[in-house]
Design a protein around this nucleic acid. Structure first.
Lengths: 237, 237
DNA sequence: GATAAACTCACCGGAAATGGTGAGGGTGAT
DNA sequence: ATCACCCTCACCATTTCCGGTGAGTTTATC
């Protein structure tokens, strides 16, 4: 089994097209003996990407109704780091219970596990496996395969990014130290006056940094510049 | 070897204190037969955390000189997803070459590999291994252990977060759908007028959402609110 | 040694965001 | 059914930000 997974990771890495990757990933169902395998990006802007073995009907319904807004699997992903069992989520709310029922009817298994994957440019994706079985059987599956799932999620994500954005290896925007300082302080909630004070420069000068950062980042205002810098990992708050 | 790593991951998960974790992680040197093992958070605000087997002298010098501002390993981390060989970084610049020399003198190996780890609340950390050997030997090491390193970095990060912030499992701030919409559009560069237009509501109403989001996030202005929401994974751009 | 980029400072007018206060209807939960 | 929270709309005065234009010094790279 461990050998199969290693081979799988290598095949994922070597995929030359998204179609090929799709087929390879679908093959996970045989390796793990589960019903469904899903990878999808969770960015609200930009082109969403999804790769799923679900029935098309369910996938279209999910998309058309924007169910990610109530799906506890997606909502929970934002706060989690390690792979998480769907059973550990909050299914108490009315909308969540209703969603679960609809998902069942749509062919999604009663068990599932998801791996949050976070990338350098603000990307956020989920790799999930779903199955139909008892709680005990599922717990046994997870206790064995959690680490594998983490690896698989990351490899799939890397492969998809590499295929979708071939030239993305290097850095995009490079901010100067002062520009970085400026955006970092603004992102931390200081206004221009305070930020300038903190950096021991005049507010006029600070403005120059903000503007040059804005132009480098192709941002329409300060908030946008800070958001882009954050999303691209140029600053951290 | 593979067995040793599995055992190591289990021990990391079960650590009851940071001191214990420190000792367990240092044990990686024996498992991999390398000189140094390092984990450190890279957040510019908040309490930095570091766990390293480097000489204390070098660690203190690095900290006091704020060398993370020129360290290509740190700078490169922001743009990368998969574990990366230090050799693949840009060492051409004058400051970088000088830093490399100083690091050598400080006892850091000539080879190294780092794993970027991104967490749910904007955390960003680096797990690194450094060693002294030939390029060929290092390439062989990496070709075998890249996946292991990815796993180890994530497990250490999870363990540290669990020990430092015991009650952090649940969610922090919950934004309403409209609040999320508002911050998302503002983070995408729209001004209040355009954002309101997009959401088909009056600008007055939009302002209410911004203000309530600001108060929930304890943010001092719109830019701060968007930055916090981004860092906490409440919105994506 | 030239060229580019970063860092520093300054003015002005118009545009946009903020803080405070108020109000009504809808929905979900205890 | 009451409480809390969400969605929607409005005014006013003040603070802050934006866009354009200009210019001198230092540092780094070719």
């Amino acid at each position: 089994m461990q050998n199969q997974i290693e081979t799988f990771l290598e095949r994922v890495e070597q995929c030359k097209s998204l179609v090929e990757l799709n087929a390879v990933v679908a093959g996970l169902r045989d390796i793990f003996q589960v019903n469904h395998v899903v990878y999808h990006s969770v960015n609200s802007l930009g082109e969403p990407y999804a790769l799923a073995t679900y029935d098309q009907e369910w996938a279209e319904y999910y998309e058309s109704e924007a169910l990610y807004r109530v799906d506890p699997v997606v909502l929970g992903a934002f706060q989690r780091f390690h792979p998480y069992n769907w059973k550990s989520l909050d299914w108490e709310k009315k909308t969540a219970r209703q969603f679960f029922q609809e998902a069942q009817d749509g062919g999604v298994g009663n068990q599932g596990v998801s791996v949050p994957v976070r990338g350098p440019h603000g990307e956020f994706a989920l790799f999930s496996i779903s199955h139909t079985c008892s709680d005990e059987a599922w717990a046994r599956f997870l206790s064995v395969h959690m680490p594998d799932l983490l690896l698989i999620g990351h490899y799939i994500h890397a492969s998809i990014r590499a295929l979708e954005f071939p030239g993305e290896d290097g850095s995009y925007v490079v901010l100067s130290p002062r520009e970085t300082d400026a955006l970092r302080l603004l992102g931390a909630g200081l206004n221009r006056g305070r930020a300038a004070e903190q950096l021991k420069i005049s507010e006029h000068t600070l403005r120059v940094y903000i503007e040059s950062a804005r132009s480098k980042l192709n941002a329409s205002n300060t908030t946008h510049a800070v958001a882009k810098a954050l999303a691209q990992g140029l600053i951290n708050i």
